[in-house]
Design a protein around this nucleic acid. Structure first.
Lengths: 201, 201
DNA sequence: TACTTTTGTTAACACTGTTAATTAAACTAT
DNA sequence: ATAGTTTAATTAACAGTGTTAACAAAAGTA
């Protein structure tokens, strides 16, 4: 009864070809341009066959999200093993994380829900500058009054904003995971850590 | 010649009514559900009139993005003025930033390009756990071997991941703004700061 | 060969953003 | 007040999107 096996194998190949065509599209024009019709066109089948293998478009994107986390996990594990001291490991992991994100922007955007069209030109908005200036000025005076007056204000500002944004957007994705209080503790922890490294040398 | 003035005023009112209807829709069902047709329906006009006031849909969303940054900027400025010491100001700003984000999630998502559909259920993916376990285990051993063995590993993990994700996604938005080297310096700065507060008391 | 199950296609539904052509309204000048 | 001009708004369509019901074709089974 190898006939059933072959069917399963064919089905698996079909599924893989869908993902392959979809990923090619994502790599070419970004995940926003992915459409069922384009996939169907690429694999030279009619549209509804795709729904025999994936419940909907979201399921296809979810597949890549999983793949992304898997790849990232492996990459982090790998660099970790190349170091002994935990501090060195954490540094290596951070660098690997960074590299993964920018060498696989499509993966990363899917994994963390990035990529609203309106944000593409967001950096040119004057309101952004006005907001950031509040932060920058505060950080600069903090540095000036600290025991480490030759720290780079802009660098520290980016660090500060990144910590804030990272905290917020991570918590925003995993909505119900934590209590408001424990979320606030994470914020407190990160910010107090930042302030310490900012004001002391 | 008050007639020209009135026209300008009417045009401004029209524009405002479009934004009002659009924002109501965003608040009700999220920015992903916003459509030109729904706006036209809400203001009881035909579809193309909207294009007399906004170049396209993106321009409408951009308007809210600007509004968001303006509101955030004002909120930060306000809390800053309530404190004297820069360190206290930075803490207050961080809290205000946090509050703004979660009291105005629609604004925040627009401002930072968050909200891909596939990410809603992303926390249940097993691959995520496997990736995070690499980080968590490293941090826990770092804590154990440090002079501060009673630190909360999960809390520090969240801080670590948030810093990384914040750095990445901020840099991803403002693509060309900085050189790769200066970006890497920001990463280095943030991570070394984190490690210091992690391993030392 | 006849029957059943699986597989694939056609065609449509209900949406989306955007725009050209056309009509209705408002204003200007005679 | 009427004729001409400019502005405003509408209808209708184009080109897409995800999704699905109804039907036809192929494959496997008796």
């Amino acid at each position: 009864m190898g006939i059933a096996e072959r069917k399963i194998r064919q089905k698996e190949e079909f599924r893989a070809s869908i993902l392959e065509a979809a990923w090619l599209q994502v790599l070419t024009d970004g995940w926003q341009s992915l459409s069922i019709r384009k996939i169907a066109d690429a694999i030279e089948y009619s549209i509804p066959v795709i729904y025999n293998h994936f419940e909907n478009k979201e399921a296809i994107l979810m597949e890549f999200t999983k793949e992304g986390f898997q790849k990232l996990g492996l990459a982090l594990q790998e660099v970790k093993e190349q170091h002994q001291r935990p501090a060195a490991q954490l540094e290596a992991i951070a660098n690997a994380y960074w590299d993964f994100a920018f060498e696989n922007t499509e993966y990363y955007q899917l994994m963390f829900g990035l990529g609203i069209p309106a944000c593409e030109q967001a950096r040119q908005i004057p309101e952004v500058k006005e907001m950031t200036s509040v932060m920058i000025s505060t950080i600069k005076t903090a540095i000036a009054e600290s025991g480490n007056p030759d720290a780079d204000g802009y660098l520290k500002y980016h660090t500060y904003l990144s910590i804030l944004h990272g905290l917020v957007s991570i918590q925003m994705i995993q909505k119900d995971a934590k209590s408001d209080l424990s979320k606030r503790m994470i914020l407190q922890d990160a910010i107090s850590g930042f302030i310490i490294t900012l004001t002391s040398k």
